[in-house]
Structure formats: structure tokens, C-alpha cells
Write a protein that binds this DNA or RNA. Structure first.
Lengths: 345, 345
DNA sequence: ACGTTATCAGAAAGCGCTTTCAGAAAACGC
DNA sequence: GCGTTTTCTGAAAGCGCTTTCTGATAACGT
């Protein structure tokens, strides 16, 4: 049994020797850091090509104390909201020649912190938290405990969504204003009785949207009955279940606001399953404007957020030079898009 | 201007010194590779905790010649098909304590190859190609040129979709059989006149589905008129445009098959915009069963693929021990799901 | 023609770990 | 009770690069 030795890895040194230069020179040629005599340049390039040289990114990172990867942490890649933002991040990363490490927490806040630690170990150039703003004292403390040393060590951090105490660059969808704008638009349609399907209250995304919505109603003298506010999981089925529960217990509203489009999709199904027509019997509105909702029927009224743009922004924010001491906030307005899922009363 | 020196990084050596042991011992404790006297163990752990030690993954990878990251290359994170598969991969990765590097090619085959090279440089433990099977002689040659040395060096590769000559582990959705099953189901409904919205023919995903569909029709003595087959981009808008073109030039079919659900969503919109009702005027079917299509109205008839499962499978295939010499194929059947978008003739 | 500055290349010192290798200490056998 | 095996720990050699630092040439000015 002849064991074939693993083909010796082609290292920089091998390339250098083959080209008759020192590793230092080879490195300089391959990284274009310094002028090198043309003749040597050619020889190195030819040797690298011939030998199929692939640099070892780990060695490079170790020696140069910097890496080309950015870490992105989101709740769920398969959720269209995060997918859209991640797509924007991806575009921004590839423009800069950076690689993206993507982690799904599957909505477990503890895992979010664990991933930050892992990304620190990877010496990620930046860590981007594409979250929904989990507002929990202990959690934010633990998160800060991870983030602060990382920042002090030169790491970059930016987040999407409002956090209470995290002092980092933030991409802030104007959830509160968006909720208010939506409420006004619905009031304009003549609605006075509303129901809301919320997600977990611990998320700022949820509480901000709800607050904006409720405040705008109040300003118009309209009350939101507590029993018409139902909490559900941040998923399609969460929306379905929340809406079903509401219908069971008695829906007293002419218009339902689902705190995210994803939940609205579930709500639409629940309403339909319950024999209600949208918008004839009840109007329905969502939030986010994920791509698919315009193709529902009826197309969903929602608050449009520039998700891909937000993804690019969070990357840009994290990487901007020089790193500002004060953390900055990039605000993104939501635009109410009235579609056929809402009708005048 | 007092310059505050960057806080010296906490390295293994610092931890070791603080615990009064050698770096070797500290390493052993932190990696549980060998028994270490309990007393020393405690001291090392305490020191690591106290100092907030974060290992340097690059140094680890370099020294141990192995890394904990797997690379995943797909066309577009924000496409629900890829997102669903990526989600499965993500789950499989996190179960194994691996990190996922995700790259979008934005449908550029050249970029796919470039990313493989980059992932090679990252010494990714495995490279997963979540593609649609680009069948191009030159491309496959170039891809093999990247993959073969990687495999020889101990790398693992697995792909989703059929490729003509790539000799790697494959997760194979039974596109052809699925297309055939769908055709039979539609024939059973009484349809005899079909139109097909295809994606780029260069993709095996497209050609296999089309072939299965067409063959099954032929077997039933039904012809597919060439002018009723329209090619569009692999996106919602591609489906919309293709369908619009078809309608413009005259649709002579009672049933339209869109080669993917994403395209079907666009087609549905186009049909509607053209004043046609689905399924009363024309039936519509897709392929994939991405989550949202059951919530369209009418819900879309389609061929259901276990996308997340396929994602887990492609990871499992790549990582299975020992690495088999012969490449293996994991087949996944599609199940026809009849929903309201198709009606008996 | 000679000193001076500007270019370019190589030697060598790490970057922060893992992992042999070998030695010291402890446990064992008879 | 002494050789032998077993356990545990440390020294040190790398992993494959980047990057000073230094020296050798070449280009320049006068």
C-alpha cells in the first residue's frame, strides 16, 4: 500500500524559491505594497501562477493583524426581512473585497452574545448586529461586555435597530414615526377601531412601532383597546396564531395592524380561514415592505423600509474612517404604501 | 496629547504567565486535549476568565492547519429558495460548532469561481456550492481547476444541483422527476395546452425540470408548442416579464408552468395585470414550494422540495467521515402539492 | 569623481497559537 | 526497594505569512 504523501502545500516560500527571490520580495509583489523591479515581479507572478499558489489567509491575518472578514449576526437568514438586509450587507462587502460571515441566532439572545465572542476570536474586522433590538438590561450588559473590549481593540461595530444602552453606530429604521404615519393613513381612510398583532414586546422594533401607532391614534382621540392587542411570535405562524386567537376571542376592529409583514402574511391567512374578506370585511396593514407583499392578493398596505440600503448603510457605518469617537445614527424613514389590503371605511 | 497605548492583547502567553504555567499547558486546558492537574486547570481557567481571554482563531488555524469555517456560495441570499437552503446549512453548521461564510455571486458564474478561490485562501473546512447547476464546459473546467487541488489538499466540497462533470458530492433535487410528476398531475386535471416560463437554459435546474415536464407530456401524446416556452430571468420580475411577453404574443394554454416559484409569483402578477383570473381563466403552477407560495391567493400549486433538509444534507455530505473516494449523490424527491392555483379544466 | 540621497531586495524577527519531544514526578509491579 | 511504566508539564520548533531593519546598488548633484 503505497501512501501518496499529501502534495506539499505551495507556500510563499516555495513560490519565492521558484522565482529565485526572497519570500519578502514575493510577498511585496503579491500584495503590491512596494515597487519591485519588473523582472522580479514577472518571475514571481509567473511562479505563483504556475504553482497555483493560494495564500493562507490565516497566516496573513496573523502576521498583519487584520482580516478581511466581517461578521453579521441576524435572527434568521430565511426571514425575508433579514435576508433583504443581509443582501445589502453582502453587496457592500463585496464592493470592498470583504468576506461575510453570517450567523443565525434562531432568535436566541444568548446565542447572539456567543456569536459575538466567536467573531472576536475570528478577529473580524467588523461585527454587524442585524437584530430587532432586544431590550433587556442584563442582556445589554453582557453584550457590552463583549463589544467594549472588541471596540477598544480596534474592532468596528454597527447595529440595526434601536438598543437602549449599546453605544455603537446604529442604523435606525424610524419605527415610531413609521407606526404613526401608518396610523394617520389608516385614520384618513376612516378607520377608528383597530387591532394590533405584535411580536415579542422585548424588541424595540415591536415597542417602537406600537408606540408610534398608538400615540398617533391617541392624538386623534382614538383608543386602542388592550384586548385588541395580541402578542405572537415574530413569524408567519406567529401572525396566524395571534390573529386566530383574536378572532376567537372576538375581533372588534375594522382594521388590523400586524407589526411586521411576515406576521401580516399569517394574519391574512387567518382572516381568510375565518371567512373574512380583506379589505371588504376588515383591512390589514403590515410593516417593512418585504418584496413579496406586493404580490399578495390583496397587495398589502405597509410601511416601506429600504432594507437593502439599510444593509449597505450598516456596513458603511461600521467601516467609516476615521472611527469616530461618538457613535452615529443613520435614520431611515418608512414610507406608507397604501395598497388594496386597506379600504376606506 | 497623551497617547494611550492600545491595551496589550491578552494572548495565551499572558494567561499562562498569570496562571503560573507554560503556554503549552494553558493551551491544553483551554482545548481539553490532555489531562491537566486539576489545580493548574482551575488556575488557567480563572486567569482566562479574569483577563477576558479570546483565542486568536487565525493563530489556531495556522498552527493546527484546520479551521472551523465552512464556505457557502449561493446566487442571492435574498432569494427565498437559497435562503431556505442556507438556513438548513446554518442549522447544520451550528450543530457542529462551525461558522458559515456566505457569499452571494449575484448570479455571476465568474464570481462563483473567484469565491471558491477566496474560500481556499481562508482554508475553509468545506466549500458548499448552493447553485442552480451552470452547465458550461469552460466554466466547469475552471471550477474543477479550483476544486481539485482543494480536494487533494483535504478540503471538502459538496454541491446542490446537478453538474455535468463536477465530480463531487451532490445534493440532487429530482428536478426531472418532479417536472414529470407535475405534468402528470396537470394532465390529470384535464389540461392539454401548456405554456412554460423557463429560466436561463444554461442551468440544469431549468433544463431538467423542463425536460421532465415535456417528456411526461409527450408520453401522454401532448405537445408543447415552442412558441409557448419563454425564457426569463430567474427572478420575480423575470417571471413577470416572461409571462407578459407570452400574453402579448398570444397565450394559447390553459395552464402555465413557471419553472420556479419565484418566477411564478411574477407570472401570477402578470396574469392578473392582464385581466386573467387564476385558476378560472388559466391555471398556474410553480416549483420549489418556497414558504410564501401557500399564502398567495390563490395558493400556488407547486412541487415541494425539502429545502432546509437539503441544506443540512449538503453539509452532512461534505463533512462525512471518512471522506469517500467516490462522490455520492443524495437525492431529494419533489412532491406535487395541488393548491387552488390549478383547477380541473 | 565623490559624497549624498533614493530604490530596491533580503535577513530575520515576530504574529499567537499547537504539538511534538523529552524530562520530571508519581504510580506501579514484584 | 528499585526498575519500569504511566502521567503530567515545559521547552521549543514550527504554521505561513508581513514587516521592520539593514545593506547593496543605482541615480543624482556639483
Amino acid at each position: 500500500m503505497s501512501e501518496r504523501a499529501a502534495p506539499a502545500h505551495v507556500t510563499l516560500e516555495v513560490v519565492a524559491r521558484h522565482a529565485g527571490v526572497s519570500p519578502a520580495t514575493a510577498s511585496r509583489v503579491l500584495n503590491r505594497t512596494t515597487r519591485v523591479r519588473d523582472e522580479l515581479r514577472e518571475r514571481v507572478l509567473a511562479a505563483a501562477d504556475l504553482l497555483g499558489y493560494i495564500p493562507n489567509a490565516h497566516a496573513q491575518a496573523l502576521a498583519s493583524a487584520s482580516s478581511r472578514v466581517v461578521g453579521v449576526i441576524c435572527h434568521d437568514v430565511s426571514d425575508p426581512y433579514f435576508a433583504a438586509i443581509a443582501s445589502g450587507v453582502m453587496r457592500a462587502a463585496s464592493e470592498r473585497g470583504l468576506l461575510m460571515m453570517l450567523a443565525s441566532t434562531f432568535r436566541d439572545p444568548a446565542r447572539e452574545i456567543a456569536y459575538v465572542s466567536t467573531l472576536r476570536a475570528q478577529r473580524a474586522r467588523a461585527i454587524l448586529l442585524i437584530s430587532s433590538g432586544f431590550q433587556d438590561r442584563a442582556w445589554e450588559r453582557a453584550m457590552s461586555a463583549e463589544l467594549d473590549p472588541y471596540l477598544r481593540g480596534g474592532g468596528r461595530v454597527a447595529v440595526v435597530s434601536r438598543h437602549r444602552t449599546l453605544r455603537v453606530d446604529t442604523v435606525l429604521p424610524e419605527n415610531r414615526a413609521g407606526g404613526a404615519a401608518l396610523a394617520r393613513a389608516l385614520l384618513d381612510l376612516g378607520h377608528r377601531d383597530f387591532a394590533v398583532l405584535t411580536g415579542p414586546r422585548a424588541l424595540t422594533t415591536v415597542s417602537d412601532r406600537l408606540r408610534g401607532f398608538r400615540d398617533a391614534l391617541a392624538r386623534a382621540g382614538v383608543d386602542l383597546a388592550p384586548d385588541q392587542i395580541v402578542e405572537g411570535a415574530f413569524t408567519r405562524d406567529g401572525g396566524y396564531d395571534a390573529c386566530s386567537g383574536l378572532l376567537q376571542r372576538g375581533l372588534r376592529a375594522t382594521c388590523v395592524f400586524a407589526i411586521t409583514d411576515v406576521m401580516a402574511i399569517g394574519a391574512l391567512a387567518a382572516l381568510r380561514d375565518h371567512g373574512l374578506r380583506v379589505p371588504e370585511d376588515v383591512s390589514l396593514a403590515g410593516f417593512d415592505d418585504i418584496p413579496v407583499v406586493r404580490d399578495l392578493s390583496p397587495p398589502l398596505t405597509t410601511v416601506a423600509l429600504p432594507l437593502a440600503e439599510m444593509g449597505e448603510a450598516v456596513m458603511a457605518l461600521a467601516l467609516r474612517e476615521p472611527p469616530r469617537r461618538r457613535s452615529r445614527v443613520a435614520r431611515f424613514d418608512g414610507a406608507v404604501v397604501l395598497r388594496a389590503s386597506t379600504a376606506p371605511l
